[in-house]
Nucleic acid binder design. Structure first.
Lengths: 199, 199
DNA sequence: ACCTGAACACCGTTCAAGT
DNA sequence: ACCTGAACACCGTTCAAGT
């Protein structure tokens, strides 16, 4: 019962947001390949040229989608720390990292695809750095002697594991039954750092 | 001075090979985005429809390109073992793995991109498995108690590290100056496995 | 058996013109 | 200020027809 007309007409400032939302839907449904500017405009009920008032080109639109991906990603990894004893936080965050990738395969892929063009967009860069920061900090805590190396190794491990699982490269392990393996490997990775460099 | 006309005319059986070669060139020059069926046909000097006699569709062509990528990859990783004492082989192969990715960024990306469609093509699957097999075996040797876990962890680590470097995600580290870091991290990963589970 | 020409149904992007 | 209509230069793919 509000005064604003609902669905149609994006002549206010919502077209930009609506485009990103629709792009996220298209991504989830058909992968990055399926996200097209014309089809996007069609979905939102606008002319093919309209999106270009809000995004310079397709890459800019994709970057915006990736940025919201990193925000959600950040929340997921950060949230995994709540109520967890400090010495188990790294393992919990690593597990949450991989589980996010498994839960949002196409979005995760997009976040690390070449289409983003070296993360030139500052918003995207910020969102990505924030997401990584959480895990890097936890990893650095585990290995105070070589904080940089520990963070990179940990990040490489969870990212690589995520990708291999998404690609279906691990024989007998699919997205649906990966949880036990993910749990075991992330905990073991945490333990490994600690054992190598005990406090 | 041979009897066969050189450049033109692929009416024998070479069109298929010529297409894959040209696609590899286009990939190196402009990335996966730049590989198009029409442009490909143009380069090889053939009609736009001709490639479809040899590849069902674009995905099949891309899969063929990825397969030769995995073959070269396999050789590089396997070759890194030559003349290296057995207890240093894993580290050497891990380093070679990452260095291959850094030396052939677009090819490596393609090999792990979603365009390949779950590695349905048997040739591609074989080529990929052979490449992974080398490293997995070396990793399993390092940790005989949990060969599967060790192999997956090692592979995840090198793959993740490669991707992060290609994406330029590591602050201050670019493809050109990554060598020392790559060497340090791969050697440390090898050491970590050994220390955690000494023979 | 292998390739061409022409066509179909799309793209991303631009730009004058509308409101 | 924001959007439309129409156009430009492309795509991937198919299919009858040529040799």
């Amino acid at each position: 019962m509000s005064t604003s007309e609902p669905t149609d007409r994006y002549h206010h400032g919502d077209l930009k947001r609506a485009l990103v939302e629709a792009a996220l839907e298209m991504l989830v449904e058909g992968g990055a390949e399926a996200v097209g500017m014309r089809e996007l405009a069609r979905r939102v009920g606008v002319s093919a040229a309209a999106p270009y008032r809000h995004f310079r080109d397709k890459q800019a639109l994709i970057q915006a989608v990736a940025a919201v991906g990193f925000e959600r990603f950040h929340e997921a990894v950060e949230g995994a720390r709540d109520g967890v004893p400090e010495d188990e936080q790294f393992g919990a965050m690593a597990e949450a990292y991989v589980k996010f990738a498994l839960a949002h395969p196409r979005l995760y892929r997009l976040m690390f695809s070449a289409e983003l063009g070296q993360f030139g967009d500052p918003d995207l860069r910020r969102a990505a750095d924030a997401a990584y920061g959480s895990l890097a900090l936890a990893a650095a805590k585990e290995d105070p002697e070589r904080p940089g190396e520990a963070a990179i190794s940990a990040w490489a491990f969870v990212h690589g594991l995520s990708m291999l699982l998404l690609d279906g490269q691990l024989l007998g392990v699919s997205i649906d039954n990966a949880d036990p393996l993910v749990r075991a490997l992330t905990r073991r990775a945490a333990q490994r750092i600690r054992t190598t460099h005990p406090a």
